[in-house]
Design a protein around this nucleic acid. Structure first.
Length: 293
DNA sequence: CCGCAGGATACTG
DNA sequence: CAGTATCCTGCG
């Protein structure tokens, strides 16, 4: 059914190349928690805009609410997909020639991309992520948006900014199914409120410095810090180690008994400066069963 | 009812 | 340092 409050589907001229698997995995495979699968398209919001994205063949089409500024929307989308990053070129630098596991993972998702999500949203999402699976994280994300975020379009809300979250009590946050993460999010919001420039300053820091800053937040350990660095700040060397990745690395390379720090050192050395991209291939392939655990 | 999930933290030895 | 209990919630 046509929805006249949305623009016609228009093919996006600057779209990166996608195939169906890579498209779904890039947006709804654990990097972002703001996309929902509809019948024939994905719908999601970031930076207060709402998007519908549809892949037909290798053409990606976009439709957004009529009232939004189309130019700005597409410009945001380009940034989100990190169009300036040559992922095919990066793949070529990864050691797939000598690494069968990596090779199989890349073949399964040949056009996988690492997103550059807005920092505030990525931080919120990954603060929600501890011991939660993607559908549950998305639920927390959605509830928070629905309850406290600005309405983007007819009952659909975007995530509120941190200054809005800072006004909430921990008990308010607990009602959003955040559980013990409510305390982390509450405290993080207070810190951001107290130091309004802090969040944006991460963009210009070198990776180690930014990681140190992120680790100073309650509820942010190495894994979550690396997720923010990789999926928002474009630091492709960051290598988040969760239980999936740890399991794969141990099995694939015979690293039983390695600590997460040791696994990270191994990965940096083995995969190189774009280790984080390799991580995402392995993660996606393991989760979908392409790689056996 | 129990065990557990894509984690962090405080505490123990 | 390595191990362990605890923090919420929902699901099987």
């Amino acid at each position: 059914m046509a929805d006249s409050s949305f623009t016609e589907w228009k093919s996006w001229r600057e779209s990166p190349q996608f195939d169906p698997e890579s498209f779904l995995e890039s947006l709804d495979g654990g990097q972002s928690f703001s996309w929902n699968r509809k019948e024939s398209y994905l719908e999601g919001s970031f930076k207060g805009y709402l998007y519908r994205l549809k892949l037909e063949g290798d053409t990606l089409s976009v439709s957004i609410p009529q009232k939004l500024d189309y130019e700005n929307a597409l410009s945001n989308l380009g940034e989100y997909f990190a169009l300036e990053t040559d992922f095919q070129g990066i793949i070529d630098t990864l050691p797939w020639r000598s690494d069968q596991n990596l090779k199989r993972a890349i073949e399964a998702y040949p056009n996988l991309r690492i997103l550059k999500q807005p920092l505030n949203e990525a931080l919120f999402g990954f603060l929600c992520s501890s011991t939660k699976q993607i559908p549950q994280i998305k639920e927390m994300f959605r509830l928070t948006a629905q309850q406290y975020g600005p309405e983007v379009h007819m009952q659909v809300h975007a995530l509120p900014n941190w200054d809005v979250i800072a006004q909430l009590e921990e008990t308010d946050l607990r009602k959003l199914k955040l559980g013990y993460r409510a305390r982390y999010i509450h405290k993080t919001a207070q810190k951001i409120k107290a130091e309004p420039d802090w969040l944006n300053s991460l963009h210009t820091m070198d990776t180690n410095e930014a990681k140190k800053e992120l680790l100073s937040l309650p509820g942010v350990g190495s894994k979550i810090a690396d997720c923010v660095l990789l999926f928002s700040l474009g630091r492709l060397e960051s290598f988040p180690i969760d239980t999936w990745i740890a399991k794969i690395l141990k099995r694939a390379y015979g690293l039983e008994g390695f600590s997460n720090d040791q696994l990270q050192a191994f990965s940096r050395n083995h995969y190189g400066p774009y280790a984080g991209y390799a991580q995402q291939f392995l993660f996606s392939a393991a989760r979908s069963g392409v790689l056996k655990l």
